[in-house]
Design a protein around this nucleic acid. Structure first.
Lengths: 239, 239
DNA sequence: TCGCCATTTATTGTCGACAATCACTGTTAA
DNA sequence: TTAACAGTGATTGTCGACAATAAATGGCGA
């Protein structure tokens, strides 16, 4: 029922409660289980994760600093709802960051990396075929983060993690639900170019991939989405 | 005595206490008044800003999310001490971000912007001549942030704000104190290229500027700096 | 004299309660 | 019927106190 699950802490590894909370919220947002605008009540979270409210507050302030949620004073925390302008800025930033990461990845990409990426693409295609949206989103994001991992720049990697998450929110708001985001297999050719070490082609493909993603946005639709319960219950076609 | 001053809140504008704290710490770090590794005790801060510890904690978690400070559990908050590897990553990220910002700034740079930047350069030179290190650091940072402002991309601007702050920490750790960071007037030609709208030259100059900054680092010196009182009291040239 | 260990002290983490603020419900009046 | 209003409930913000942990001190023994 609740889209946030306490990130199964099997037995060992008793991480700090705040980390569990942030990780759970991040993955929930990354898989469209928490749509933009959702309220994140403190007591609800402290109940769900059975910890004190102070831990929840720490997690929320940390997430707010990463622009994943927005805290309005005396109002509460809400999943961020990027504006059209912010959406464009995020895509511009992604192009900038991913271009560099792709270039940096070329000399570090080993055979194992390439194989793993191909496996991820296959898994993603399978999830898409099976209609498993959350898995598809998760794997698509993991693909981009894998490039960052290969590139070996943690600072840019962190930026990309933030940007891909915000991209997921943007797609949820303005994305075309039918024509899926990464429907076309854009990732396959990217791996090919990375394996071949063809920098110019790789950068062009990454650019094209992101441009295609951005081109699929429709800012008219999401603009007037109040995210009230009425919206969620009446499946009308708008107004 | 204390390098953190409560950011004079004249009369009106009663901002939230957490914002005052974060702003004060950020500016203190940006002006080398708070060296890397400095402990930021909760009670000390709550005393200084005359607010409750909960506000201090919020400010500290927010700063930790921006990698400006580091929170070690049960140990406290410390001004971040970037490793040599992190330093290289930060510079790589800066090159990536600033290249794009410079390019984006070209079509938006008005005459007023150019004039303001020239004024900032003059002020910076004056501060350098007068030996006012904090002012020099502040103005140099402001110059780079001005380009981001002209570019008009808030997301990349926020990234740059974070990166420039981390750069300041890096310079404090590994920078050459004598040969100042931006000693040469690198900023002047950048404004010229921006005004002329010569993209290739502008990007090259920005790249060169950052490369020069990075080349001045000496990772041997700062590596074994424990930041103990003994170090601060004995002005030896380090074993 | 030096090294190790128990004690003390200071700081962070946690907790529950209360106050301040906001959203919502039901009421009243035009 | 609609709009404005007061009351009510729930949520966030604040506070002080206590517990848990780590650092610093001092004492003990070799």
């Amino acid at each position: 029922m609740n889209p946030i699950t306490p990130a199964d802490q099997t037995v060992a590894e008793p991480r700090a409660p705040e980390e569990t909370i942030t990780a759970s919220i991040l993955s929930a947002v990354a898989e469209h289980r928490l749509p933009a605008g959702t309220k994140l009540g403190e007591q609800a979270l402290s109940d769900l994760f059975s910890c004190h409210r102070s831990n929840v507050r720490r997690a929320l302030t940390s997430l707010a600093a990463q622009h994943v949620i927005e805290i309005r004073p005396h109002r509460g925390a809400f999943v961020a709802t990027p504006s059209p302008r912010e959406a464009r800025e995020v895509f511009e930033a992604r192009r900038t960051v991913e271009r560099t990461l792709a270039r940096l990845a070329i000399p570090h990409a080993g055979a194992a990396d390439i194989a793993q990426m191909r496996a991820m693409i296959a898994e993603e295609a399978e999830a898409r075929a099976g209609g498993d949206k959350p898995a598809e989103l998760r794997l698509s994001r993991a693909f981009h983060m894998k490039i960052a991992e290969i590139a070996g720049n943690g600072v840019l990697g962190q930026f990309l993690a933030e940007l891909t998450l915000r991209t997921t929110l943007i797609l949820g708001l303005y994305g075309d639900a039918s024509a899926s985001s990464c429907a076309r297999d854009d990732h396959g050719p990217i791996v090919d170019a990375l394996e071949a070490g063809e920098e110019a082609r790789l950068v062009a493909l990454v650019d094209e991939h992101l441009a295609h993603l951005e081109a699929g946005l429709d800012f008219e639709r999401g603009a007037s989405r109040p995210m009230t319960l009425a919206e969620q219950l009446s499946p009308g076609t708008g107004i």
